[in-house]
């Protein structure tokens, strides 16, 4: 009895010492070393791939943003600012609930199932909105033109990208609102379309923030 107790104590002591040494190694030295190397070698990426425009920070090129009009009275959700390319819906994005001293966005998805009435309604509404919003003079999109990413929420809620098809769908509207020619906006879209890495990794995409920054510059010039 007594020996088994001593043994247990000895074993627990060894386990605790093992945990503490490994914590120093993996929990302190390792992250510090990686951070040091990362900050030295890739400071831009390591600090969030910030994007600047006109000398001011406009966000991270990796994190999607909303391009909405200020919330008006009586609205539950703000209306999109149709001057800019619109990102994917971000139905899964939630507000900070725990640590309320900050105003954080909590990444996430809607987690709705394919047969969920809520999701079906969300898709229907989004589809109707995309059709309505993108109807520009001389251009009426067909429902079949709308790609899936335009009406579905992403996994993180912060998807920085849209599909090239969704970007093209928005070209006429954006061109009209910014008083630019569709050709020019189309050129911008093409310039900001990223193909698959090495031709097969990932999917072709358009970074909305980068496109909007370019659009802003073009609009200012134009």
């Amino acid at each position: 009895m007594n020996t088994s107790l001593t043994n247990t104590a000895r074993l627990t002591g060894a386990a605790l010492r093992a945990l503490l040494t490994l914590t120093v190694l993996c929990g302190v030295l390792y992250p510090l070393a990686v951070t040091g190397l990362a900050q030295g070698l890739f400071p831009h990426q390591a600090n969030g791939s910030a994007l600047r425009s006109n000398g001011k920070a406009v966000g991270s090129s990796l994190i999607g943003q909303r391009y909405d009009l200020p919330l008006k009275k009586g609205e539950a959700t703000p209306a999109p600012d149709l001057r800019w390319f619109q990102p994917r819906p971000s139905g899964g994005l939630t507000e900070n609930t725990v640590n309320t001293q900050y105003k954080l966005l909590v990444s996430g998805a809607t987690n709705r199932a394919g047969d969920s009435p809520d999701l079906i309604k969300a898709v229907e509404d989004a589809k109707a909105a995309v059709l309505a919003d993108n109807t520009a003079p001389g251009y009426t999109p067909k429902p079949s033109d709308i790609p899936a990413d335009a009406v579905t929420s992403s996994a993180s809620g912060m998807d920085p990208d849209i599909s090239p098809a969704y970007a093209r769908l928005q070209v006429h509207r954006v061109a009209a609102r910014n008083h630019l020619s569709a050709t020019e906006v189309n050129r911008l879209v093409a310039a900001h379309t990223t193909g698959r890495t090495l031709g097969f990794m990932g999917e072709p995409r358009v970074n909305v923030l980068e496109l909007n920054v370019a659009l802003g510059e073009a609009a200012r010039k134009g």
Binding site: T110, G114, S144, P147, V151, T152, A155, D161
Partner: peptide, 13 residues
């Protein structure tokens, strides 16, 4: 309805 099972999936993947 949406034209693909992209709900909860990221565009880049």
């Amino acid at each position: 309805l949406a034209g693909g099972a992209l709900e909860g999936k990221e565009t880049r993947f």
